[in-house]
Design a protein around this nucleic acid. Structure first.
Lengths: 186, 186
DNA sequence: GGAGGCATGTAAATGGTTACATGATTGG
DNA sequence: CCAATCATGTAACCATTTACATGCCTCC
């Protein structure tokens, strides 16, 4: 149940409304987790029931800021240090790669080249973030920087891989009709 | 709705039972998608209703092999070339990194060092697969090799990142009380 | 004969997306 | 005054997990 803890983690930085939390999912967490506002409002109600957050006074336009309680903070820490992370990933773009053999070589290579382009675009977005964000290197920004570096290295590795893979196919490596000239990968 | 297409993709290699498909999710697809048998049996029934697969004769122990139909094959190809892949990822281990700032430096560094260890173990598993699988470089194995290379590069990049990140924290880079000696990352 | 793996299913609960619905405030 | 954005919520549906449930077959 990670959404609960993601919300606690965001609220540990300071009080925020459901609307604001939704934005933060879109902007900073989108590369690792996602949630829509409909899910977030429901989860905030559950967290309130558990005593992990507490709604503040209603402000302008009906806005309600939620505050993390000390129980909530304790639960966040407990989750981080005690619970084993769920290692299951799901990545539809990579799932498709397993089935590219059903396409002809040209279509498969084009798919991988498009993937490479997608990763290049993602890399540019990471550089933009790096340039725009005022990194003050305290608290959450410090880890934000470390998380950004992860994204950077990840897309760089994936771009290199997709380019390599498209090249392998274009070169006919391992193609059924060229088995004789098969060489070890890379 | 990727599970449908994942099943079509697996069945494109040849007929298989729900049990066998479950195993293949565990063994070869687990790094990009997962599904339990309860979901797979239900989805096979839906795919049968859509005319994309067809159950064969009941064999020993009630085993039923499903065959992909030509409509199913066409749908698989259509999905691969026409539908944009869903790019939303969810990665709980990485989600936690955003909240590590709530821990003390030692606990945060330990988390990242454990992550590095996890990636090293994953790298060893990939090497084992590479050694054990009889790659004949035809059909699906050809793409299996390319997918394996993706996994290899991905865990290598993530191990390097986690090691770097733990080092950053241990060195106190960007720590609030050491802001004066802050240097650019890496 | 019993343990373990093969093989299939259903039910209940939870997690998550999409669509529906409403209203306030700000800036042009 | 109108459009965009802020702000919250509910309902229906779909996807996924966990637990329950059953029986066959093989090897020891």
């Amino acid at each position: 149940v990670s959404l609960k803890h993601a919300l606690l983690g965001l609220l540990a930085e300071g009080p925020a409304s459901g609307y604001e939390l939704t934005k933060r999912f879109e902007l900073s967490l989108s590369n690792v987790w996602s949630a829509r506002h409909s899910q977030i409002y429901g989860e905030l109600a559950k967290l309130t029931g558990l005593g992990f957050v507490r709604p503040g006074e209603e402000g302008a336009r009906g806005r309600v800021d939620y505050h993390i309680t000390s129980e909530g903070r304790a639960e966040l820490i407990r989750w981080l240090v005690e619970d084993e992370p769920e290692r299951k990933l799901r990545n539809e773009a990579m799932l498709r790669v397993f089935f590219l053999w059903t396409l002809d070589d040209d279509a498969a290579a084009r798919y991988l080249e498009e993937e490479a382009g997608h990763y290049r675009a993602a890399a540019r977005r990471f550089e933009d973030i790096d340039r725009l964000v005022a990194w003050d290197a305290t608290g959450s920004d410090r880890m934000g920087r470390i998380a950004l570096e992860q994204g950077r290295r990840w897309v760089a590795a994936m771009e290199a891989w997709a380019t390599w893979a498209a090249g392998q196919i274009r070169a006919g490596h391992g193609a059924p009709d060229l088995e004789g000239m098969l060489t070890r990968a890379e």
